[in-house]
Write a protein that binds this DNA or RNA. Structure first.
Length: 813
RNA sequence: GCUCGGGUGGCGAAAUGGCAGACGCGCCAGACUUAGGAUCUGGUGCCGCAAGGCGUGCGGGUUCGAGUCCCGCCCCGAGCACCA
């Protein structure tokens, strides 16, 4: 009773043999049909008010030459299930996908294999498309992006100009992280433990002119919104750590010099300990150092400053041994009036706070280490630990708690104009300059007469020229400078001789706004269309890896806020909901090429089928925690899909469905729906397996009404198989199973007639009794006492009886 | 050091304070088979013949009842870190 649907020849089987699930044939058929029928196409006007728009976003991949990684597939499948499920729930789902094709990664790979990124990238993208379609993702490719194409990066450059217009882009000569291997500047976010995130080389300090974005201006907003954003807690925590708010106070210390008093302002989070501040430390680069240093100390101070300047960023932060030099100057502690010495030391950083601290060695480990090394006084002003801590030796503040002390001391100092409460952020401005080739040229022109001139929007894109030799060098200048024809340009302002900015922008700028582009990807005249943006954004649901918790997600939020402030958007936050998925490992170990334990999706799909692969990836463990891919386990999922297939093959429409089976079905409808919605895919699959076991119990012939709803439940996980079985039941030309809705849940059908009650005696489970659903305590006790196995533990009258209807009875004797 | 996660059978894992181990892998036994690395059925936390006892990293506590809540530790993973 099956409708032959596959154009691919099925295995020639003996007439007596029933047909078997053939994933390759089913998947080829449906991938073709989806394409022919435009099943994955979405109407971006979202014209049907009964089907409200739902923007489901997945993190677009970098199209590597190696092809799709299982990690990609794990991420995409988990997102795809959400998108397909929402479509079944009646939403108009937009679930686009594109390619993050620019960047050092591609460029380095091209250099390594002697290829050119401009020719290599389209090949890689095509291979990714093939693999992604083979995995059965519900993607509307009509709205895709490739960040390395001029029709995309034209608008990346436009985004730069919008930020520039607002004064959020600026150039400064700065000590930057320089990777001597990749020969480029790295953002702080790309330096891991002093090493380049990409190649692992130790990062050096270099002074270069760089373009920065003033993300630090947005630190407060970026932090505050985390309060209400519906994001994975792990991601929010990572962002909070990164932004690093600390509240405290700035305090002014007068330093005596021959030209009169100078003021050194320090930042402290422990102003309550000011009575214990026994010396002052300035960062070596602090502008006051020159002013306050005495002639006797000048030589020592200069030598120390020079040594610090020579030191690279890495060793300054990693050498924990305290060093420093006395300036010869004396400051006055504004709380005690006592003279305290002024030192310089490289453990105080110019970039953070005010570049100066008051040292309280009694209550700060770093200050203590320094004080001990240089024999500076240590004065304790807090006694006790934690909540018990009280101020001592602090004049009128004695006896206050730390918190009370902070308030009182800052207020007292503020009265004399010597202090003010402030907030500091650890977040640094975002350096977007890259002295590399494979990225969008920063749209700036330098004119001798007009200075720094932004390229007019009408002249975008500034096209990245094809450079035969794009290899970076040690000059600190981008390879683009070598293309004289490109480099020399007429000033857009005066028409005179000018030269182009040769830096390209950071890949993270490309990806900071791609979700805005998707709905308008077909538009050549605007970055993003007002109406489409209004319909589709903010993104309803974003799912991706936590490796982007700070970089990509923070930058996207910042750029969105900046574009909003410029009047281009009317929302602050781009992603209403974000969920971080876990990491996938294999047999307990991280997958890596060097270990040779990488799973090749092509091989796995060929062997097991895409539907089995998808479902198994989701079955490994909790989606948000990741999972362990064990090769042996996949057969269980395949067995499940086989049984689903066989159930549909064998099902009958004669007679009526079984009541008990239908009860289990309705319980499953509810649980699977709830579980998918909360990304608990592994338990959703377990529930379906459990139901199939009921369905096939004793090799019974299942009823059509028992089987088809299961096909719908499984559809998001195994879309090809579900379409096939659905089409066989409803005709090959009928609507897609994804437009057939979600099976109706009927709580009266799901309800159990009787309940199994656990009976405990003194909290130990001694047995169970079967009771009517609405049975009361008396009936429960009577039933329990009628069981000899239970009654023998009950001596005399129970002292107390705990009864939880439908669940448990506890007799306390 | 600070901030988050997480520690449960042989393995991957389930469990609104209410029968710990659902579901799957593996394993054992059986059925069907010329065959089984196919399929189906049953079993499978540990100790014990059994009755029963013991079991969710360790130690306390709250509760009629704790994997779950509280306190103190230990271990694993992630983020931040001379950030004042």
């Amino acid at each position: 009773m099956t409708v032959p649907t596959s154009s691919a020849p099925t295995q020639p089987a003996a007439a007596s043999e029933p047909d078997r699930y053939d994933p390759a044939a089913v998947e080829a058929t449906w991938q073709r049909r989806w394409q022919e029928r435009g099943t994955n196409h979405v109407d971006l006007t979202a014209g049907d008010p009964a089907r409200p728009p739902y923007y489901q976003l997945m993190m677009f991949p970098y199209p590597s030459a190696e092809g799709l990684h299982v990690g990609n597939l794990f991420a995409f499948t988990g997102t795809d299930i959400q998108g397909r499920f929402m479509r079944q729930q009646g939403r108009t789902v937009f679930q686009p996908l594109g390619f993050d094709a620019f960047g050092i990664h591609s460029e380095n790979y091209a250099l390594k294999v002697g290829a050119h990124p401009m020719t290599m990238t389209p090949r890689n993208v095509a291979n990714f498309r093939r693999q992604l379609d083979g995995a059965g993702l519900m993607v509307d490719w009509r709205y895709s992006v490739d960040t390395s194409q001029p029709d995309y990066y034209r608008w990346t450059q436009w985004v730069f100009l919008q930020l520039h217009k607002q004064g959020l882009a600026y150039k400064k000569k700065a000590a930057v992280n320089w990777c001597p291997f990749d020969k480029t500047v790295l953002a702080n976010e790309q330096v891991i433990d002093g090493h380049c995130e990409r190649c692992g080389t130790a990062v050096e300090q270099r002074l270069l002119e760089q373009w920065f974005f003033r993300i630090s201006d947005y630190a407060g907003r970026l932090l505050d919104d985390l309060e209400w954003l519906d994001w994975s807690e792990t991601t929010k925590t990572a962002q909070r750590n990164w932004i690093g708010r600390s509240t405290g106070a700035q305090v002014d210390f007068a330093i005596a010099t021959p030209e009169g008093d100078k003021v050194a302002t320090v930042f402290t989070t422990r102003v309550d300990t000011i009575f214990g501040a026994t010396y002052l430390v300035l960062a070596p680069e602090h502008p006051l150092v020159d002013v306050v240093t005495t002639p006797e100390q000048r030589a020592a101070v200069d030598a120390y400053r020079e040594a610090t300047a020579r030191q690279d960023v890495v060793s300054r932060k990693i050498d924990k041994e305290k060093t420093g030099v006395f300036t010869g100057a004396t400051a006055t502690n504004p709380a005690t009036g006592a003279p305290i010495p002024v030192w310089i030391a490289d453990y105080v950083l110019m970039e953070y706070g005010t570049g100066a601290i008051m040292a309280v060695p009694a209550h700060d480990a770093r200050d203590l280490e320094f004080a001990e090394k240089f024999a500076l006084p240590v004065v304790a002003v807090v006694e006790g630990e934690g909540a018990e801590a009280r101020l001592v030796g602090s004049a009128q503040f004695d006896g206050l708690t730390v918190e009370e002390g902070k308030q009182a001391v800052v207020a007292w100092l503020a009265e004399r104009g010597a202090a003010r409460a402030t907030t500091n952020y650890r977040l640094h401005d975002w350096c977007i300059s890259r002295q590399r080739y494979w990225g969008p040229p920063i749209p700036i022109v330098y004119c001798e007469r007009c200075g720094t001139v932004p390229v007019p929007e009408s002249q975008l894109p500034v096209v990245l020229p094809f450079l035969e030799d794009f290899k970076p060098d040690d000059s600190g200048v981008s390879p683009l400078a070598r293309d004289a024809q490109w480099y020399h340009v007429a000033c857009p302002s005066c028409g005179g001789d000018a030269r182009r900015e040769t830096d390209v922008s950071d890949t993270f700028l490309d990806s900071s706004w791609y979700f805005l582009r998707y709905p308008s990807a077909d538009r050549a005249d605007v970055a993003f269309d007002r109406e489409r943006t209004k319909t589709w954004l903010p993104v309803n649901s974003y799912i991706g890896g936590n490796e982007h918790a700070v970089l990509h997600l923070l930058y996207s939020r910042f750029v969105t806020m900046a574009l909003k402030d410029a009047g281009h958007l009317d929302f602050d936050e781009p992603f209403a909901t974000f969920r971080a998925h876990g990491l996938i490992v294999r047999e307990g170990a991280k997958m890596s090429k060097s270990k040779g334990n990488v799973i090749n999706p092509d091989d796995t799909i060929e062997r097991w089928g895409a539907d089995t692969f998808r479902t198994y990836l989701m079955f490994l463990g909790p989606y948000e925690e990741g999972g362990d891919f064990r090769d042996a386990g996949i057969s269980g999922v395949r067995r499940f899909l086989d049984r689903l297939y066989n159930s549909a093959r064998d099902m009958t429409s004669e007679g009526a469905p079984d009541r008990a089976v239908m009860r289990r079905l309705h319980q499953a409808i509810r649980k699977v729906g709830d579980d998918i919605a909360r990304l608990s895919y592994n338990t959703a699959i377990a529930e379906m397996m459990s139901y199939v076991n009921v369905l096939r119990q004793g090799e019974r012939t299942p009823h059509r009404d028992e089987v088809l709803p299961l096909v719908q439940l499984a559809a998001a996980f195994a879309p090809h198989l579900a379409e096939e079985l659905w089409a066989r039941a409803h005709g090959a030309d009928g609507p897609s199973v994804f437009d057939a809705g979600w099976p109706l849940y009927d709580s009266s059908l799901a309800a159990e007639a009787s309940a199994t009650i656990a009976v405990q005696v003194n909290g130990k489970t001694r047995g169970t009794v079967q009771l009517a659903k609405d049975a009361g305590q008396e009936q429960a006790v009577a039933a329990a006492m009628a069981e000899p196995g239970i009654a023998k533990f009950v001596t005399g009258e129970p002292r107390k009886v705990i009864f939880v209807a439908g669940r448990l009875l506890n007799l306390v004797v």
